[in-house]
Structure formats: C-alpha cells, structure tokens
C-alpha cells in the first residue's frame, strides 16, 4: 500500500519532468495552427519549422562553433588543470600552499565582479568577435585543478619515482605514466567542462556580435528574444530542440557518468 503510493508519486513527478520535453519535440514537428491545442500527437506531421529555421539563421554553423569551442576548451582544461593539479599534489616548491589558497579563494569569488573587466580585457586584446574570446577565458578551471590534485594525491609515489629513474620529465609522467590510472577523474572533468561550456550563454552574448561566430545557445537565445522567430512558436521550439538534442543523446549513452560527475561536484 505504502509502496504503491510511492510509485504513484514518483511516476507523476517523472511525467512532469519528461513530458515537457516530449511536448516540445512534438510541437516542433506540428503545423503552427495546431501547437496551441496540442496535448499528445500532432494531427499533421511537418518539417516546415525546421526548414524555416535553417533558412533564417546559420544554425549549422552555430552547431559547428559550439562543438569546436567546447572541444578545445575541454581539451585545454584537462591539459592545464592536470599540470597544475600534479604540481600541487606531487611536487614541493616555494609558494605551493599559496597557490592552493588562491585557487580556493578564486572559487568563492562571484563572477559578477570580473564580468565587466573581463569583457574590457577582450576588447583591448582585440578578441571580440573571434573564437579566442570564447575560448581563452575558460582554458583553465579551479575546480578541475582540485579534482586532479585529489586524484594525483592517491596515485602511488613509486610509479613516479620509477618513471623518473627511466628519465621521464614531468609532462611524460603526468600524461603517459599517471593518466591511465586516473581515467574516472578525466571523464568527470571532461563531462563537467564540456557541459558547462556547451550551455554557457551570458559570456558569448557579451563578446560575440558576428552571427557566423555565435554558439548555439547564443544564436537560439537571440533568435528567440530578437523577434526573428516572428512569433512563430514552432520555429522557436525547433531551435530549442536542436540545442538540447546533442546533450540529451550524450546523456542517454553516458548517463551513469553524467550523474556521477555531477555528484562529485558536491564533494568538495
């Protein structure tokens, strides 16, 4: 009896979480006139909204931009954060603790304070309307450093000593000797970084004006608020579907890793 009640509650909630996505997908393949009364399946199927979207905005290019920017950032974050994380975990040098505290401090610093000056830095460096503006400010990440530091602390020192005797330098120790043993951390950092970059929208809105360089969330946002959807709900929803799809596909395949990565963001 109690079990049954729990199931009913959970199922009602699950519907409330999944149904809106389903509705959005169905609405995006329905004719404009039917969306307002749509509850389940459309009476007529049409791809008109998608065709109309492709003719109105460079959504293909935006998809390419988003993939490019998110991939480069993810690669850089893993690369640089692993270097710093290793230095903090396995080497001794003057100022090490200081750097560690700076990282903790920076993590608590609200971004509202750096937003305007960082935009100005981009202007002065001539990065506005270049990929550099989307990439450079994100190539290293405090939280990723801490995750790598944590992972490297628990790798055996003997492995490093042996590699040193074989004449490995720090870079080879990190990326060839130790990397295979910290794959879960790499996956976590990869997913967290890729996702947050893919979904970032405030920063692109600030530094990119050229439509050809816009990332997907930015393009979809401007399309949706700028009135270019011309009140065409279906087209707006089609663009939202296209923005959500890549992440949802990745999520269905790597669901376990997604949830585990996010959960680790709580373990600080």
């Amino acid at each position: 009896m109690k079990k049954a009640l729990i199931y009913i509650i959970l199922i009602v909630f699950a519907i409330a979480f999944i149904y809106p996505f389903f509705w959005m997908l169905i609405a995006s393949i329905s004719p404009e006139t039917e969306i307002g009364s749509l509850t389940f399946l459309p009476a007529h199927f049409t791809l008109h909204n998608y065709i109309s979207m492709f003719s109105k905005i460079p959504i293909g290019r935006a998809l390419f931009n988003s993939i490019l920017v998110s991939s480069i950032i993810t690669f850089c974050v893993i690369f640089f954060s692993a270097m710093v994380g290793y230095a903090l975990a396995k080497t001794k040098f003057i100022g090490r603790d200081f750097i560690f505290y700076i990282i903790i401090f920076t993590m608590t610093l609200p971004f509202q304070i750096t937003l305007i000056p960082n935009y100005i830095t981009m202007v002065k460096l001539g990065f506005v309307d270049h990929y550099a503006a989307l990439i450079i400010p994100f190539v290293i990440n405090n939280f990723a450093i801490l995750l790598f530091r944590q992972a490297f602390i628990s790798t055996p020192q003997a492995l490093i000593d042996a590699a040193k005797i074989d004449g490995c330098n720090n870079m080879r120790i990190i990326f060839q000797v130790l990397f295979p043993s910290i794959i879960p951390t790499i996956v976590t950092v990869g997913i967290l970084t890729f996702m947050s970059t893919w979904n970032e929208v405030l920063w692109p809105l600030i530094v990119i004006r050229d439509q050809q360089l816009m990332t997907m969330p930015q393009l979809v946002t401007l399309f949706s608020v700028g009135g270019r959807a011309e009140g065409q709900l279906g087209v707006k929803l089609a663009s939202a579907v296209l923005l959500a799809l890549p992440i949802i596909i990745a999520y269905t395949f790597f669901q376990k890793y997604f949830i585990r990565s996010m959960a680790s963001s709580g373990i600080k």
Binding site: F17, W198, F258
Partner: peptide, 9 residues
C-alpha cells in the same frame, strides 16, 4: 536529472 543537463535556454 534530465532538465539539469539541458541548457537553461
């Protein structure tokens, strides 16, 4: 978890 991974937009 689904809504969390999707963009706020």
């Amino acid at each position: 978890f689904l809504p969390f991974i999707v963009s706020g937009v």
